[in-house]
Design a binder for these strands. Structure first.
Lengths: 344, 344
DNA sequence: CTGAAAGCGCTTACAG
DNA sequence: CTGAAAGCGCTTACAG
């Protein structure tokens, strides 16, 4: 019987049990209406024929969806990989399936990916926008039927938004370096046109301001938020004297790249230069030296994002909310160094 | 009009254009049968009403599926994250959507995840089996309707299988260390009951054998394939004299953990101990020192896995194939050290 | 080149 | 407690 190529359907089971399809449907969804003996018979037959529920057909009829689309830049970034893991975990627990999409940081590709995912009728969307995303174009694609949660970067428009507390995080890191005695502190990495980078710089500047330190233009070094680019840009920190003695990095990838860049110049983070990161990706704890960083717990943020979008599905009327989890500083060896001028 | 809550359907467009649903359907799928003027009218109306195609309904009618399920252990592992990125990339290019599932290395959870994903009617499945997976149970769940590609670990059963050339990779790494003059070479990390670990040990042993080196039992150190566990187990390499001067590690995570463990003991990979990894995760190139490792190109493997399953969908009759991409050794600084006895 | 009818696998009132 | 009928949004022969 299972040798047959075709799918086993409700109708097959109904015929075999000499019942109507309606009754089988009730059994499948655990309705208390159906007689215990009947239920047992049906369940045996379901197992015997290897029936598998066609959720798509049921969803079509019921006009519901059990999928949520997750659109991110790229899983290669551990931050997003952790985030995605958290999203998937929480969605699975709630009985939803995750439709994956990645944009590779391209706004064009993002349009294509969203449009393709929409055809699969997701109940909701979680989007970490690619750089250069245009809110109007996205809205035009989505219409107003599909709720979306925007994560990590601002996108304007009337969507739910889950943000990291970038200002506070960068401020904490900067204050920590100031407390160690540093006065010449760089902000290293990231692109100025990314909202998260702007916010982190703002926190950095605020901390300097509170300590009556005037930030120097050469303390701001831009670079793509990757390890490799950061390593390449390391030299830019030391072109002028007096050079900074510490750097608040845009994120952990950049910080790890900077530490590698320092090493190739015979310097060592935590020994003659202080470095802080942002994200607390798993590598941060095991790098050499371990990296002082701002914990944002991407996996927990992923779970949170999933829960927010699920909540929005239940209550479509509730106003779009802005949730900002508090950032927390993890002090490790990479920043545990006092500047030369202040030591001894 | 778009203010209405309901979905815009074919019927809405047909009514607005005073045509039948069949004609609209033809337009949607780009049939050449339909009159150019009619097509233009329809397309304008589709745009005007913000129509979005319901692929699920079409698939139901056509008895096809445009989804492929991807089931892995955990996206936290960069190896799997890269693999998943490759799979998603290739599937998207082919017009498929990726249904994500993760098992957290639990065979129980794997059953649950597979069973849930099956209800979403995937055209095929890509599975990297959790440790302790049981082929019979999986087969019982899947039946014979849904083709599956097994990746990375053996699972038995009649499925397509995409394997890394573990034996060859480990052999290459070991031969490289021998060529540097090492004679006491450990195999570090992994669990003996994982097929990939067994295969890598086999390659290691073969290389030793060819060099007439008798492997010592204390050169085999097991540990969970994570950075943290590897760092914790580092001491096990040095409990007896003479200690190994080099280690072939189960994978990159383990190798990075070992390098961290060495650092805390005042040793440094590439200076007084040689280390090789396996996988070539992105960190390997930027660790301090950079890690000599076996490139398996997880992203390319992901694309390959996607292409294999898509091919199987086109040709269900072709026999299950075993594809083994050649492993390649990337020599970097972590292994560029000659043992004490051999130097000077 | 376009339309009427049937059907994919399920669920939902409504009867009985 | 169970069944007959209609319908979710689409496609597919078959006519014309």
């Amino acid at each position: 019987m299972p040798a047959s190529r075709g799918r086993v359907t409700l109708t097959d089971i109904a015929r075999a049990c000499d019942l109507s399809r309606a009754t089988i449907s009730l059994v499948l969804r655990g309705s208390p209406l159906v007689n215990a003996e009947t239920r047992a018979r049906v369940e045996a037959e379901l197992k015997r024929q290897g029936y598998v529920y066609h959720r798509g057909a049921a969803n079509l009829r019921r006009k519901v969806s059990s999928a949520v689309a997750l659109v991110i830049n790229d899983l290669s970034n551990p931050f997003f990989a952790e985030f995605a893991a958290g999203v998937d975990e929480a969605l699975a627990d709630a009985g939803y399936v995750t439709l994956l999409g990645s944009t590779g940081e391209s706004a064009e590709r993002q349009q294509a990916v969203l449009s393709s995912l929409l055809e699969h009728d997701p109940a909701g969307i979680i989007l970490s926008p690619a750089e250069g995303s245009d809110a109007a174009r996205v809205r035009n694609l989505l219409g107003t039927r599909t709720p979306m949660l925007v994560f990590n970067r601002e996108l304007g428009g009337e969507w739910d938004y889950l943000a990291l507390d970038n200002v506070r995080g960068a401020r904490l890191a900067t204050e920590h370096l100031i407390a160690q005695g540093h006065r010449r502190i760089a902000f290293f990495g990231g692109h100025q046109d990314s909202s998260s980078c702007r916010q982190r710089r703002e926190g950095y500047r605020a901390a300097l301001h509170d300590a009556s330190i005037a930030p120097q233009p050469q303390w701001l070094v831009e670079c793509a938020p990757t390890r490799l680019e950061a390593a390449r840009q390391t030299g830019a920190l030391f072109v002028r004297d007096p050079a900074p003695t510490a750097a608040v990095c845009y994120n952990d990838a950049v910080a790890l790249g900077l530490m590698a860049g320092l090493a190739t110049r015979g310097r060592r983070a935590g020994q003659d230069f202080a470095v802080t990161g942002f994200d607390d990706i798993p590598e941060a704890a095991v790098s050499a030296p371990p990296l002082t960083t701002v914990a944002v717990e991407p996996r927990a943020r992923g779970r949170q994002a999933a829960e927010l979008i699920l909540q929005r599905l239940r209550d479509p009327q509730s106003p779009a909310m802005l949730t900002i989890p508090p950032a927390r500083l993890l002090v490790r060896a990479s920043s545990q160094v006092v500047p030369d001028g202040a030591s001894a």
